[in-house]
Computed example of a mutant assay.
Amino acid sequence: MRAIGLAVDVYKKVFTRPVISPPQPVRHTGFDLDLTIESVRAEAADVVSLVLTRPGGAVLPAWRPGSHIDVFLESGRQRQYSLCGDPRDRHRYRIAVRRIEDGDGGSSEMHTLRSGDRVRIRGPRNAFTFVETAPSYLFVAAGIGITPILPMVRAAGARGRLVYLGRSRDTMPFLDELPATCEIRPDDEVGTSDIPALLATAAPGAAVYVCGPPPVIDLARRTLFALNPTASLHTELFSARAVTDGREFDMVLARSGETVRVAATETALDALRRVQPDVVFSCRQGFCGTCKTRVLGGEIDHRDRLLTPDERPDHLLTCVSRSAGGVLTLDL
C-alpha cells in the first residue's frame, strides 16, 4: 500500500503540474543554401508567400512543423521566416511575409523578390517544437502567426482544433487551406476575442500552441494554468516585446569613444541604431545571435535564450539584454 501511495504522489507531481515549453536551444549554424524563388503569390493584404527550390530540383534538408529558415537579403539584413508548406515535400520550402510599413525595411525588401531571384538561406532550425504525442491540441494563431501553426494543424489531424484570429478576413493568409473545423474570428466580424475563454476550451492534458503578438502570448501565459493545470503551453512571438522594466544606462563604443544613452523603454539595439544604422540584427527576441556583441566592461543583465555560460561574462545580445547597473563598454 505504501508503494501505491508513493506512486500516486509521483504521478501527481509529474503529470498534474503546469508545463510551459522551456526555451529551446537554437542552433545558429547549419545548412547554408543558395535557393531560387519558384513562385511568389499574394495571400492576403500585404502578405505574400514565396516558394523556394534548389537549383536543379535537388532534395532540401528535412524539417518538422514549427521550423524556420534564416533568409539573407542583398542589403545585409538577416530575417527568420517560418516554414508553412508541407514537410513531406523535400523539394520546396514555402514561407510567408507580411509587409510592415513602419518596420526596419526587411519585410519590404522581401516583398521586392520575384520568381527566378536567388536568395541565400540557413536552416531549417526549430525553436517551436511540435509535440507529436499529445492526446489533443488547441492552436490559437493571430495574424501572420498562422505560418508555423499551419503545418502543425495538418500533423495533428483530428486531434487538433484551430482558432484563427485577425483584424479582418482580407488580412488573414491561407484561409483557403484551413480545415473545415477551423474557427475563424476576425475582429471586424466578432469583436476582440476573449483569449482566456478560448483557452478554457482546451481539453485536460492538451498541448496548447499560441503564436502571435506579445499581448496574446502574455495573456495565455498568465491565464492558461489557472484554467487547465494539466495542459502544456507552447508559444512563439512574431514581434519583439516592448521594454517595460528597463532602466536608463549608458553604452560606450570603445572603438570610437562615443557614448550612447539607452532609454528605459528602448533596447540597446534601438539605441545603437541611432548612431550606427547598419548595425546587424535579426530576430529582436534574443534567440538568433545575429546581434551578439563583445562587452569590454560593465555588468550585464542577460535576457536572451542563446548565450552559453562561457559567453555570458563578456558578450550580450543587444536586442534584449541591458546593463545590470552602470555603464557598458562595447567592442563597437
Rank of each mutant, 00 (worst) to 15 (best):
T267P: 01
Q80H: 04
A42Q: 13
A45Y: 09
I100G: 08
G166M: 13
S82L: 12
R305P: 01
Q24R: 04
R54K: 06
E266W: 10
L6N: 05
L198K: 06
R125P: 00
K12Q: 14
T230P: 14
R185D: 11
S67K: 04
G166R: 04
L175F: 03
G297A: 11
H91K: 11
E248Q: 04
D9L: 09
I121V: 13
T29K: 08
P55V: 09
G56C: 08
S39P: 07
V19T: 06
T244K: 03
R98M: 09
A156P: 08
R64G: 08
V59Q: 10
C182Q: 02
V262G: 02
S256G: 02
I184P: 01
S321M: 07
L253Q: 00
A62K: 04
T259L: 13
E248M: 04
I184F: 09
S321T: 12
D102S: 10
D331G: 09
T201I: 15
R169A: 14
V119N: 12
M152G: 03
L253Y: 00
T265Q: 11
F72S: 15
T293H: 11
L73F: 02
T265C: 07
S239G: 02
R114L: 12
C211A: 10
N126I: 09
V71A: 08
L175V: 12
R161G: 01
L138D: 03
I69C: 01
